[in-house]
Design a protein around this nucleic acid. Structure first.
Length: 533
DNA sequence: CCCCCTTTGAAGTCT
DNA sequence: AGACTTCAAAGGGGG
């Protein structure tokens, strides 16, 4: 489906829907402890949120305080800051960036930069750069109006991804993201090309034929717009991605990057996805993270073939293109490390539970950021892989457990996983739900967009269905148990909009208002419907 | 060694 | 149209 929201305002979308807090109650029962734990996490989060809301550049500093970074990084980081400052100035001066579309985006997402879990606690400067570069994607305004003046493209982006991106990236952009999970700890220093190391195995791999002939079904236009690999070059230093000879280097990769690039760099762009080998680069020179070479990726079979081995037959030809990440996934990637840092537990399942809750506790704006980001990713993905369909990946994974989840005792898992976190927690009162604290959920994506014909309309599924039902995955018992808690029915408290959002010029402003209203209107309905169950 | 678990969301298939 | 399935990330646990 074409993503027509080019227009933009609707991008934020997602607001109509409210995200119900499913299971809150149940979960609590199961994991009351967890709740408290969550609180703790929420604290962390709230602090982050504040930062973001303040939109101050303090975040980095704050983070720095929390986790002092290695000196080496400090320098580069410093530079980065300068750069951002500069960008910010431009933004303000030039007015190119009306108010931040995503006020929250900024610093809040950087979490991982200093996260000890990442890269052994020290994200290489390059990594930061990498992150910075990624950000632009987010910045891509859905609206043509926001386009960079330099942008050659017409204002109508229609269902095309705003490929043209702005050199001037939002100053904050860099922060975003995606973590560095790909920057595996112990990632080889600059001279080694991380991209050629299998993240899991750490085994250096030679560019695979499949990789060599990357398949970038980019539309001609898109391709043309994709700049050379300059962005791969770290700003501060060239540690990270060795650029093939001939590649041009731009002093400010981030600035030079356009939407396409940013997307390329986006979340899934793991270094290893970025072949340093000249051959591995597409003419565009831009690998996409979504593409996973069967040979390399430990896919379904779980086999990892470090060795390029035989040129994989057909499979190679058709690399596995991953689905674009959804908003929550993006959030997870970003926040996981943080959560992990907060808790001793490392089990992803447990972490994910927490993340799920935190997700709900996010303010609408915050979630909106991710929805937006996800939307962009999808757009980009669709552009990059026009013919790709989610269906293509069906069956590639090992068959998933058939919903037997019900039998599995999640409690077990939760219980034990939560405990570890609990230790940290202040054990304050266990609030019913994070939602209650924030007001919750609300943000579901895009309903508005849906209304607007946005392709990505976030399925209302969760928001609405989930509520009382506690959906699919949850054990039935839980679902049925108290489902209809007052909490769910609670009107949305969420009234706070960040000032920046209120900027008349900000698309977000409108979207926010729109969504807010929509939300208010819709919520009751959804509640009603749900509660009846 | 490989799947499960767990989360939400998107997109696919099925009824 | 609505319900249901699959997959996306992640990484410890367990068979």
């Amino acid at each position: 489906m074409p993503q027509l929201n080019g227009g933009g305002g609707d991008d934020l979308g997602a607001n109509d829907e409210m995200i119900p807090f499913k299971d809150e109650g149940e979960q609590e029962e199961k994991i009351s402890e967890d709740v408290s734990a969550e609180r703790d996490l929420d604290d962390v989060k709230s602090s982050l949120v504040n930062e973001s809301e303040n939109n101050s550049s303090s975040s980095d500093s704050e983070q720095a305080e929390r986790r002092p970074q290695p000196r080496a990084d400090a320098e580069s980081w410093e530079k980065a800051r300068d750069y951002f400052s500069e960008a910010l100035r431009r933004q303000q001066d030039g007015g190119l960036f009306k108010s931040p579309h995503y006020p929250g985006y900024p610093f809040l997402m950087i979490p991982d930069l200093t996260n000890p879990y990442l890269s052994n606690g020290a994200l290489s400067p390059s990594a930061r750069t990498y992150l910075q570069m990624k950000w632009p994607l987010l910045d891509v305004p859905g609206t043509a109006a926001l386009k960079d003046s330099r942008s050659p493209t017409p204002g109508h982006l229609s269902n095309k991804v705003p490929v043209v991106q702005h050199a001037h990236v939002h100053p904050l952009t860099p922060l975003i993201t995606y973590s560095n999970e790909h920057f595996s700890p112990g990632t080889p220093p600059s001279h080694l090309s991380p991209e050629i190391l299998d993240p899991k195995t750490g085994i250096p791999r030679t560019p695979h034929p499949s990789e060599l002939s990357p398949y970038y079904p980019l539309s001609p236009g898109a391709v043309g717009q994709i700049p050379p690999l300059g962005w791969l070059v770290p700003q501060q230093s060239q540690h990270m991605y060795p650029i093939p000879p001939g590649s041009f280097r731009h002093p400010y990769p981030a600035l030079a990057m356009n939407a396409s690039m940013s997307s390329l760099v986006s979340s899934r762009f793991s270094p290893h996805m970025v072949p340093h080998h000249p051959h591995s680069l597409h003419q565009t020179g831009i690998p996409h993270p979504a593409i996973v070479s069967p040979a390399i990726k430990q896919e379904p079979n779980g086999h990892i073939s470090p060795s390029p081995g035989p040129v994989k037959k057909e499979e190679d030809k058709k690399p596995h293109i991953k689905k674009p990440l959804n908003a929550f996934m993006l959030y997870m990637k970003e926040m996981r490390a943080k959560v992990v840092a907060e808790c001793t537990l490392k089990e992803s399942a447990a972490i994910n539970q927490i993340l799920g809750r935190r997700w709900h506790s996010l303010s609408r704006e915050e979630q909106a950021k991710y929805y937006e980001l996800a939307r962009k990713e999808r757009q980009l993905h669709s552009q990059l892989y026009p013919g790709w369909s989610a269906r293509d990946n069906y069956g590639k994974r090992k068959k998933r457990k058939r919903d037997n989840k019900t039998d599995s005792t999640p409690e077990d898992f939760s219980a034990r996983s939560k405990k570890q976190c609990v230790q940290y927690l202040p054990q304050e009162k266990m609030i019913d739900s994070p939602a209650s604290s924030h007001g919750s959920m609300l943000d579901s994506p895009a309903t508005p967009s849906a209304a607007l014909a946005s392709p990505a309309a976030p399925a209302p599924t969760h928001s609405e269905q989930a509520q009382p039902l506690s959906l699919t995955t949850k054990p039935e018992g839980l679902a049925t148990s108290q489902s209809t808690s007052p909490l769910l029915t609670r009107p949305i408290p969420f009234t706070t909009l960040h000032p920046s959002m209120l900027s008349p010029t900000s698309p977000f402003h409108q979207a926010a208002l729109h969504s807010h209203h929509a939300l208010l209107q819709t919520q009751p309905l959804s509640l009603v419907t749900k509660s009846t169950d």
